[in-house]
Design a protein around this nucleic acid. Sequence first.
DNA 1: CTAATAGTGTCTATTAGACAGTATGTT
DNA 2: AACATACTGTCTAATAGACACTATTAG
Lengths: 277, 277
Amino acid sequence: MKKEYASEEEFLKDYNKNDFELLSLTTDILIFSVSSEEESNYRKTDKKKMSILMVKRDEYPFKDMWCLPGGFVDVKENLDDAPKRILKRETNLDNIYLEQLYTFGDVNRDPRMRIISTSYMALIDKNRFDTKLNPKASWFDIVLCEEKGNLVDIVLDNGNETISFTIKKELREKTTDRYDFKVVKNNKIAFDHPKVILSGMERLKNKIEYTDIVFNMMPELFTLGELQQVYEIILNRKLLDPAFRRIIAKKTEKTDIVKKGEGHRPSYLFRYKDNKK
Amino acid sequence: MKKEYASEEEFLKDYNKNDFELLSLTTDILIFSVSSEEESNYRKTDKKKMSILMVKRDEYPFKDMWCLPGGFVDVKENLDDAPKRILKRETNLDNIYLEQLYTFGDVNRDPRMRIISTSYMALIDKNRFDTKLNPKASWFDIVLCEEKGNLVDIVLDNGNETISFTIKKELREKTTDRYDFKVVKNNKIAFDHPKVILSGMERLKNKIEYTDIVFNMMPELFTLGELQQVYEIILNRKLLDPAFRRIIAKKTEKTDIVKKGEGHRPSYLFRYKDNKK
DNA sequence: CTAATAGTGTCTATTAGACAGTATGTT
DNA sequence: AACATACTGTCTAATAGACACTATTAG
């Protein structure tokens, strides 16, 4: 028989939290940045790559594999606050503006128990942070990102170790939602984090077109060539100079500072110009 | 002292689930459909409105208020499967393709205990479902949706009751993420569901531009006038006929069936044409 | 006939794509 | 001078916005 309560207060006093099964919630944080690879040819500009911040697991499960910084959400903290706290603890990075990415909740995504994970992402310019990274954290460059048919190959490298995965994108029927991701190959990446990484990369690819998100990963001052390179690695295709400059003109502001000494014609430096309000 | 394990198997045998605080996860489901309001003028076509499927709460907390269909995620079921099961139980609707919307996790969003909720959304044509709705479920038309400055007013009506809310959209600093939503007025809507509803409406507004999602809420055959009306209520603005027809031409296919008897020039019926492979 | 919607033609403004060309530093 | 990148001019194609016009039905 269901008990009748006279008011919400009475009901709550009597409410037994253990009537429902409990589970754990974690949050994983995907931080993108840009790194430059020195070119041997003095004339060429440094080749840029996307990087992802990862952490080496020193405990089971997935001991000695790499994963995104993450951890358990505290019962007494807002979901949005958890990734900030955990990012600080895991990597020592602070003051980063995160946006929610997706919530992954397959039954067997964690071998310990039922754990659901809400992922967050952010773009930063890692050179603006002078805090020292925790020793177990490390930046991995995306050294390969290739899509053949419905297979996506990603290879990451931190200068020391190479890790990689392959995901099969399966079109979902009757929905305009994203694809289903199936991890078909995984070399040293813990949990379902390959899916998180690919989700973030696709989100970024979309958002770069209609937001100013990319400037979060640029330094204060940059050349348009550098900015174009970042667009090109995110979109994974070459852009034409004039078209790029037309579009970017509204979002940037030319300074009178010139970057010289690069072995070719110097470039003006630009800065981000916010047009919203 | 941290114990050393020789293998992942050994670690898992020893793993104590209660080392971490547990919480509950629910899922809320936002179902959109279109309803038509009979026009008194025989010449005019029926005015369309967006509708949302809601459920009356018959228990505390929020007794007698309206909320989205939702419920607790089972420890043994995939997150994506929970909303399907719960939607069936709460409303009797089956076989609906849901996409994940957002995960809401403020500490006090549920007065009973710490509950985090992942919301899902779907668009359906409710007339295609001949299953009878559960008595506590009901379709609410969006009878008003107005944005003034950073305040959004929404009024819902099921023919019997009117419920409403006002949300303040606060621009987040330094992020290209969505706004923060603050519920500043709430008339009879349970939990933080006003936020879920508005998130869904904004998602829909975005997705209608670059996906074919809208056809999920259209009948098999429709006139372009009807389709245009649906676009207009979702986007909340008038569209010009020629421009609309140009865009929609790629996504639709003309049949040789004509809809007559409407008090004005008859219209050909169209059907959705999927262009993705 | 009239009201209402269906459907088309076309001009213009804007934007995207393509390519070629000029400019200017370093070695 | 040669190379690499910076930056611009301009033609063309495609697209979006605006407006006006014609067509067809029920009553």
